[in-house]
Design a protein around this nucleic acid. Structure first.
Length: 870
RNA sequence: GCGGGCGUGGUGGAACUGGUAGACGCGCCGGACUCAAAAUCCGGUUCCCAAAAGGAGUGUCGGUUCGAUUCCGACCGCCCGCACCA
């Protein structure tokens, strides 16, 4: 074939708009992706799950990326002989539906189900290999009714508690605010300063499982290391001491204050004692001291988020009370500090400014002493602390019986001394707090509890489940519509029959997503799970989702699975054997001359890159590349891309440009590149399809052998890359294969080459199938007219090891670690052979002239390095 | 503030367990085809130096090593999470 083959010679055209719906229909007609609750065959199972979407109304590129990543795995594993479960559903409860109801007067249920319908049809256009028969939404009563059953089982199992807990309270709207609705300490709608208010709420005792949740991380080798680290830090096991400080005079019925510390070795460095604003001793101090009362009130107006607390200016107030140091008998003042958290430890700390930066900042600010009790081992006697605390390892000084010890030794000595004096003890503490699950909202799963004035909280009887959300609710005033509903909450106590009130709080939506993966195994079951189905399918073999869920969602799901195990709903502790966290889809953002955000399609670019608005031709400033979001208008609608280029192009692009764990920037040129490659691959293979079919040839021409080697090396490389989630590398290898196939057109078409070309094209179709499944089917069908199977039903191609192995390797020759030449050696060549060949290399020989070789290094099949002296 | 991560040519990135830095793509440059353009095809493309030889180079600074994008320390920048957004 001629070196320059104009495309105009080629008649075959690929039209995704026609082909994609056709192949989607073919898969559906043959039920290719349907799984059984309890499969009959003996194929190994593989459960692929992507984090299910919130039905916001439109799919965005982040969804396309997330679901395409999972789809590659699902299709690959299916081809590898696994029985694959790949379901989809909707995380359908949550605040946006209530906001829509308030702003646009649409009932949350209708808004949600309309959104689901719209997103389902968009999702279907992507060509995902999903088992749609398992679809459900968490707002379906059939789902949340089972969730209520699970909650009651947890209650019976002793995993549920009711206690007071703080919420963000908007005093103007008289409503509870989510953290995201608190902006700079003010309610997002009312603008009123938010207060903390304590409400009786339900908690799940996740802390009972803290040791197991921590230890379990070691059994998750297929989780990203950083996610395990983040979870371990979040659970936060620490070993320290609880120390009791007697007050110099009783404060009401309070005689002492307990603190938790991880640094008992620095107890002699105490400068003050600080308690949380919610500490009972703070309340006592407030009784007689107006400024203390005012300070506590200020602390209560800060909002509940930890980030807000930690970033706020560190402030405190002296209560005028004193405690006695258990070792020295010295008196120290008791302060209230806004950075001491009631939820952690005992709600009180001892301030040691020399060893803790926060304590030091506090001491400097309020002119408290800074005794130095620890210093680096090599520090002199003049070691002092100015504005930087020393929290590293070191030797203890100025500390009586701890002097000269290193920190670990001093810790155990201090704990022993505390225990001797009955002034404290060594304890293990956890940062993890129990999971507050009550939400004062409508659009969530009702908590199945009835409050009776005489019997207390009573479970709703199983026969009365599900407790359904009433649909005749109004959003014309702030607060929870369930609470306002005229009749819904008024019921008879299930125990005594007296008039009682339904719980009007609903569950945290994290509960909905803490067990959906189990429900997918048997979504129709009359019980929360079908044990045969979950025993077969769980754990999820590959879970795919955003890194933003690294801690909360994944930790809650791990806890929930253990709690479900305790109640017999599942037979395992860890729900997700493999986890992959993908990056975000980003895009440049644009602002016009008036400072308004513009959509990418509203911007025009000149040859020099200058941007102007299409509407009025005025200049546009190109902003940062950031996460696609509606507010910045830097979104690209997947539907529009599929209309223009087809789903395969969108899939290929989101996979090709970046490693999946990293953010990907959506660019127009990248999409066109993807589209161009797919068209090129189609043309290349279409030309092969037009060639005469040849019998298998044992003796190969040189170009045929080279092409077969390239083909089989590509099988090996793509398989390896897919196994490691390196989809961008897999795609690069497929580009190379296409280049090899194109190169083969330059050689005379001998029969063995024609045979090799057909092999190459067919294998290429199979290798691209997980990424661009529609195009793969089209190419395959064209190459194999009348073939009974779809690519979706074929086994993954096998690489022939004899074609994958290389006969010669390029070995680098270095002198003092610098590259001076390369030599060709057969694989496995020994060191002496390598040195000999290296010394014979002209450039190496020249560089070595006049040098003495001091040392020779040989790494087989990789490198030779000479260490020399002149 | 705390915890976790990331940083490589003009650009997205590749590089197995410390062993030839820049695979593959985008862009750009040159060529073929075309009346011309688009599309397509072929070739080139880290920087310095006219080429070769050589030198520099993976955010910055320092360390370990025969050899560091990879390991260690400090710093800078960006991103994720912080318990009621999902």
């Amino acid at each position: 074939m001629d070196q320059n083959t104009p495309a105009a010679d080629q008649d075959a055209v690929y039209d995704p708009a026609v082909a994609e719906p056709r192949w989607q229909a073919a898969w559906a007609a043959r039920d290719c992706f349907r799984a059984a609750d309890v499969p009959a065959g003996d194929k190994p199972k593989y459960y692929v799950l992507e984090m299910f979407p919130y039905p916001s109304g439109k799919i965005h590129m982040g969804h396309v990326r997330n679901y395409t990543l999972g789809d590659v795995v699902a299709r690959y594993k299916r081809a590898r002989g696994f029985d694959v479960l790949h379901p989809m559903g909707w995380d359908a409860f949550g605040l946006p539906a209530e906001n829509a109801a308030r702003q646009r007067n649409i009932p949350p249920a209708r808004w949600t189900y309309d959104n689901i319908a719209a997103m389902r049809s968009e999702l279907k256009r992507i060509g995902l290999s999903l088992d749609w028969s398992r679809e459900f939404a968490t707002c379906d009563p059939a789902y949340y009714g089972q969730q209520q059953k699970i909650f009651l089982d947890f209650w019976q199992a002793g995993l549920v508690e009711r206690r007071l807990s703080a919420v963000n309270w908007d005093p103007v709207d008289n409503t509870v605010l989510a953290n995201e609705q608190v902006i700079d300490g003010k309610g997002w709608l009312s603008g009123a300063a938010v207060e903390k208010r304590n409400l009786a709420q339900w908690f799940l005792k996740i802390t009972d499982y803290a040791p197991e949740l921590l230890a379990g991380l070691d059994a998750l080798p297929r989780w990203p290391e950083r996610v395990r680290t983040m979870q371990a830090n979040w659970i936060g096991r620490s070993e320290g001491a609880e120390v009791t400080f007697p007050l110099t005079a009783p404060a009401g019925d309070i005689h002492d204050v307990s603190v938790y510390t991880t640094r008992p070795d620095t107890l002699f460095g105490m400068s003050f004692l600080a308690i949380a604003a919610d500490h009972k001793l703070a309340a006592f101090a407030a009784q007689t001291n107006d400024s203390v009362r005012q300070f506590i009130a200020e602390c209560h107006s800060a909002g509940t988020s930890e980030a807000a607390i930690e970033t706020a200016e560190k402030r405190g107030i002296d209560t005028g009370l004193f405690v006695i140091h258990p070792f020295t008998g010295a008196k120290f003042p008791v302060w209230i500090a806004n950075f001491v958290l009631m939820d952690y430890g005992t709600g009180a700390i001892f301030g040691c400014p020399c060893g803790d930066q926060r304590d030091l900042d506090f001491a400097r600010k309020y002119h408290l002493p800074v005794p130095v009790v620890i210093a680096p081992a090599d520090a002199g006697l003049d070691f002092t602390i100015t504005d930087k605390a020393y929290d590293g390892p070191g030797l203890i000084r100025n500390s009586d019986f701890l002097d000269g010890l290193d920190s670990p030794a001093a810790k155990s000595r201090a704990i022993a001394a505390l225990e001797e004096r009955k002034a404290g003890r060594g304890v293990v503490n956890w940062r993890l707090r129990d999971w507050g699950i009550s939400r004062q909202r409508y659009w969530g799963c009702p908590i199945p509890v009835i409050h009776c004035p005489s019997c207390g909280p009573q479970p709703v009887p199983a026969a009365d489940l599900p407790v359904r959300l009433p649909e005749d609710v109004s959003f014309d005033r702030p607060g929870n519509p369930l609470d306002h509903h005229p009749s819904w909450k008024h019921v008879a106590c299930p125990a005594c029959g007296a008039p009682a009130l339904r719980e009007t709080d609903t569950f945290d939506t994290f509960i909905d997503s803490s067990w959906y993966f189990a429900r997918f195994c048997a979504p129709e079951a009359a019980t929360p799970t079908d044990r045969r189905a979950v025993d077969h399918w769980l754990p999820v073999d590959q879970y795919v989702g955003g890194i933003e869920h690294a801690i909360l969602h994944l930790l809650y799901a791990r806890f929930f699975t253990r709690a479900m195990e305790k109640c017999g709903h599942v037979g395992l502790a860890e729900p997700f054997a493999g986890l992959f966290t993908q990056g975000m889809v980003t895009h440049a953002s644009y602002k016009n001359a008036d400072g308004q955000w513009l959509y990418p399609e509203e911007v025009e670019f000149a040859a020099d890159g200058a941007a102007t608005a299409r509407a009025d031709g005025r200049p546009v400033s190109v902003g940062r590349i950031e996460k696609m979001s509606k507010s910045k208008r830097n979104t690209v609608d997947p539907g529009v891309i599929i209309d223009r280029f087809g789903a395969d192009t969108a899939r290929w692009f989101v996979l090709s440009d970046n490693p999946p764990e990293r953010d990907v920037e959506w660019t127009e040129s990248g999409v066109q590149g993807a589209s161009r490659f797919l068209t090129r691959l189609f043309r290349l293979t279409a030309r092969v399809a037009d060639e005469a079919v040849q019998p298998h040839h044992e003796s190969l021409s040189a170009p045929a052998k080279a092409l077969r080697q390239a083909t089989h090396r590509c099988i090996a490389a793509v398989s390896e890359a897919v196994e490691h989630f390196a989809f961008n590398v897999a795609i690069a290898k497929l580009h190379e294969l296409a280049n090899h196939l194109a190169d083969s057109e330059k050689h005379p078409a001998d029969p063995s080459l024609l045979w090799a070309r057909r092999e190459c094209a067919g294998i290429a179709a199979q290798l691209v199938a997980p990424f661009v499944p529609h195009l793969a089917e089209d190419i395959f069908a064209r190459l194999n007219p009348g073939h009974p199977a779809l690519v979706a039903e074929l086994d993954w191609p096998q690489a022939d090891p004899s074609l994958v192995a290389l006969d010669e390797l390029t070995i680098a020759v270095q002198i003092m670690g610098k590259l001076r030449g390369t030599i060709l050696l057969p694989p496995g060549a020994d060191a002496e052979t390598a040195y000999e060949a290296a010394l014979a290399e002209p450039n190496v020989a020249r560089a070595l002239a006049g040098m003495t070789i001091v040392k020779r290094i040989h790494v087989p099949d990789r490198i030779v390095n000479f260490v020399v002296r002149s």
